[in-house]
Nucleic acid binder design. Structure first.
Lengths: 199, 199, 199, 199
DNA sequence: TATGAATGAGGGTTCATTCAT
DNA sequence: CATGAATGAACCCTCATTCAT
């Protein structure tokens, strides 16, 4: 007996609820600190159901980290390395990134856990690393373009990109300001320095 | 009957071994992911002995994080805000910090865990935060001095310091290069940009 | 999906088995002297199951003591303070009580443990005390009635009731005779003396 | 090198302190509920010293229960089965016993623990039982004398003695009144009923 | 004799996973 | 598919006993 359309949607919703609850709790309490029971409760789902949707806890963790990553892909795609006004494009990018990193507190906590724990979650780490690499590539291209256009000082573009993405993560880690705080916006020009804009 | 000198030294060595083993394992596997049993084994000490030296696992974690912190105090003290040549002083500082952060992989992993878990370890977090604040203060003073001397562009010194310390943490988190890698040294000039040196 | 009728009954049986095993072992070896593991074994249940039915060992102890208490409520209710022949009623009561106290060896051992340990089990103690108070009240009423009817010597009825219930506990504690022993029955007239029957 | 007189006295004092502390704590928290460490602390003695004076915890428990028993021997000896005025002798005895049982709260708690736990402490139980038997014998003799003199109703003297000692234990167990309470004294005439005094 | 550090077995409790319903 | 009871390994911690000093 095939499942009805409604049933399928129901199941997809359940799956999503579990993922969201898992991400939240894993971010706050860590992998070992989060019992499956609590995830089920937070998702409003029976305990057993968690295991109908995910093989085991580890799989659930992996999905909770990597699936939201897809939404961030646009962060990469929205960067236009061929923009005319490189400085403006950079500033837009930095501002957007800072805003998003500020608001993604919870998710980035999760990411941090994987980074500091990468031997325990090698597959998950790999996916994060690949995303990071894509982001870095784009930034690099934009930097190269800026240097060619003479609006940025000459520096190793790879290093610039590395320092930039590091800074994003570091800020998220060091600052406990709320995402709404004006603090974040004020940091934009400081971050811009990284790229070596000619004054 | 007081303990002999030798016994006391023996105990201190044991305590240190436990702390080192704990720091290593906590850094690698996290707090919940590290059984006390393993710490004891790694330290070459019986299970029960861990509890002779530390009241419980939480206390051990706290000590493993905060006691090494004392050694880093010199990182703060070595910064001379009244240096004549501010740019040289900054460059020395950045170079030293990067080198130390690179070599402190394990310890900074531990620090990161506290930062992402600060609700679980409030006391430990507080001590880290206070250290961070002392470091930030010193950096700020040096930046102010540089701006007054006209060798740095005018920027909010607090923000500069914030961005700088964030960057240090972020680099440690993002880069998995070995401490010996020349990569770290090459990043120094990039980091210097943060301070807005006049070319 | 609700549990089937059979499952529910199964669970109730399991719960009862655990309670019985717990009562037996707690009575024999005391609270600290009884590992949960042994209770599980005695109940023919897995170790983990004990915690499916009871939050923790303390709760299990509380239940093991107070739940059987309900069955004893009839000891109180069966006393008729308005009986015509007070002496006969008293004798019936004493005989019944002695028989029951003799047969409840194990349970009363448990009770004794709570009484001697009442600071450790305040809630459990309270329930026992309330039961005891109800019993005392009834006995008192009957004594008052007997004195009014002139078949008992005048004595403070409260004290009489106190001495009576104390004696019941004391006998249980001092005598190790089997419940079947005729010893118990032979003590009835001696206990009757407490009430001051006129000869 | 023989021990000096002072040293010997010192050791005896230490031993006594340990015994007192042990009795107090065992009475309050039970055997398993009392760590040796706490006994040492309460006795103002080093942890290791407890084991210099007592082979192990069980031995210490045994001594803590049986050694004070010697002081109670006078309770038995002071009963004069050949007293002229048996009723007066009985009343004196009851009054004294009640007073002592009231004040021995702690020690009798300990006794109760042995009685309810007699399979665990067979040797200790045996000594208590022998003491109890000696007391019972004396009471019996006095009862026989009273019956012969015609001042007590005829009843089985053994049973009377049994009921009497049971009552003493039962009262101690049921009543939580302070030893100073006048309650205890008021119960004397009620207890006297047990012996069947002719009015 | 006095001390207290060292040890590891054993305790209560948690929890991922399984599986019958 | 949905549910939650069943299980037992693994966790942290306690503590009686030993023993070197």
């Amino acid at each position: 007996m095939p499942l009805s359309e409604e049933q399928i949607q129901n199941m997809q919703r359940k799956r999503r609820q579990i993922l969201i609850a898992a991400a939240t709790l894993f971010a706050e309490y860590g992998y070992e600190g989060t019992p499956v029971k609590k995830i089920a409760e937070a998702a409003g789902v029976s305990f057993g159901s968690v295991f109908t949707y995910f093989d085991n806890k580890e799989t659930l963790f992996h999905s909770a980290v990597t699936e939201p990553l897809k939404e961030f892909e646009k962060l990469v795609e929205e960067i236009d390395p061929e923009a005319e006004d490189v400085l403006a494009e950079l500033e837009t990018m930095v501002s957007k990134h800072i805003r998003i990193y500020a608001s993604m507190n919870e998710f980035l906590n999760l990411v941090t856990r994987v980074l500091t724990h990468y031997r325990k979650f090698p597959d998950t780490f790999k996916e994060l690393d690949e995303f990071h690499e894509r982001l870095r590539e784009r930034v690099m291209e934009l930097v190269v373009s800026g240097q060619n256009k003479g609006v940025l000082y000459e520096q190793d573009p790879g290093n610039v990109a590395t320092v930039y993405t590091s800074l994003l993560m570091g800020m998220r880690l060091s600052l406990i300001d709320e995402p709404e705080s004006s603090m974040w916006e004020r940091l934009v020009p400081h971050v811009m320095q990284i790229f070596g804009p000619k004054h």
